[in-house]
Amino acid sequence: MSNKHLFLKPGFVRAPLQNGVGRYVQQLQRIVLKFCKTHGGSRGMRDYIEQDLVDFAKQNPGVVVYLKPRRHRSPVVVAEYLNGDRVWMSMHNKSQSEVTKWIEVLRTQQGDVSGTRLRKFQYTDHPSIQGPWSPFTFKNPELNTAKLPDPKFGANNRLPMSATEQLRIMFEKQRLNEKDLKTGE
């Protein structure tokens, strides 16, 4: 993560308005193409408008397309989304195919995606499916029928072996070995 990310709007991976549970609604609601009619920087944009824009508008009747010619200013695309986001993108000196691809990106995204910092790569409304933990959550079913106190359940076997215990075991082993030697004789 770079420093730039600190100033991005934080967010989670979410579909707006449960989109797709009922029906799918395209999230791009309007797009404004600003360009110059004479300047060379708008060349690709002008080509796009001449050749592809009518098809775009026909295929996406839910998107309102506005054209805004302005003299000697560089070309710009402004996309507005249903969640209120507004994406401004410069198209200066971009070729027609580049403009087509960027507009396709703007059409298919659901808001200002590149302007948000994802806090996590996944999201859930229910972080736990087993509910809150209680001391009985993972209780051993054997305990239901056991008669307490029972050395099987009451044994203190949680602590690591103490030094005294280790010494005692070593001593026992040694004694056994000595016995073996004696029988060998």
Binding site: R23, V25, Q29, R30, P61, G62, V64
Partner: peptide, 12 residues
């Protein structure tokens, strides 16, 4: 007018 048309189309 265009906005109202697109509103209907968007929601199908």
């Amino acid at each position: 007018e265009a906005e109202l048309y697109a509103f209907g189309k968007r929601l199908n």
